[in-house]
């Protein structure tokens, strides 16, 4: 594990990384003194540095460990962490836009996602947010997030429909 370069910032020590494993249900466990603790992954930077600084939290939201870089973990732990991280960072991924319809005060987006066909509603004056990696993220009324990873690679019709909403 990397040693933090000495800076002027007071060092509040984070707990050291424990052994990690994942069960058949996809639940992540951290082992402290060989005792399994069910933990959840909370990425510190889910958009800007998704695989760095991962906080593992127990049922009472106490921090069990802070993993700065999963690549420094052993294979088993890294695999377990990546699986849990995929779940924590899950968003629908839009492949194509079929239609954008107007309704009173709302717009209905009908899209093909990696996860299957999906329709969702946004407020008529809500726009996709442009992320630092160039992707666009749309948030629907229920709070679900839809990501367009490469807006420039969309098919012609999708690009035409999206044009008015691109910032």
């Amino acid at each position: 594990m990397k040693t933090r370069i000495q800076t002027h910032i007071p060092d509040v020590a984070a707990p050291a990384p424990p052994r990690l494993a994942i069960d058949d249900n996809g639940r992540l466990y951290a082992y402290r003194d060989e005792k399994p603790i069910h933990v959840a992954v909370r990425p510190c930077f889910p958009w800007s540095a998704a695989r760095r600084f991962l906080s593992l939290r127990d049922m009472d939201f106490n921090e069990v460990a802070l993993i700065e870089d999963p690549d420094e973990l052993n294979d088993e732990a890294r695999h377990a962490l990546d699986a849990a991280l995929a779940e924590a960072r899950f968003t629908f991924s839009i492949r194509a836009i079929r239609a954008i319809e107007r309704d009173f005060e709302l717009r209905i987006w009908r899209v093909d996602t990696e996860e299957g066909l999906r329709s969702f509603a946004m407020q008529w004056d809500d726009f996709p947010e442009k992320m630092s990696d160039g992707s666009l993220v749309l948030k629907d009324l229920g709070g679900d997030l839809y990501r367009i990873p490469e807006p420039d690679s969309l098919d012609r019709n999708s690009a035409r429909l999206l044009w008015a909403f691109r910032g």
Binding site: R27, E87, A88, F90, T91
Partner: peptide, 23 residues
């Protein structure tokens, strides 16, 4: 409950830190 960015995972448990009855 473990809320993610756009999904929630819920474990139904008999006891904490025991295998879930359902996820």
């Amino acid at each position: 409950e473990e809320p993610g960015l756009s999904s929630t995972t819920v474990s139904l448990l008999a006891e904490p830190d025991q295998p879930a009855l359902a996820v």
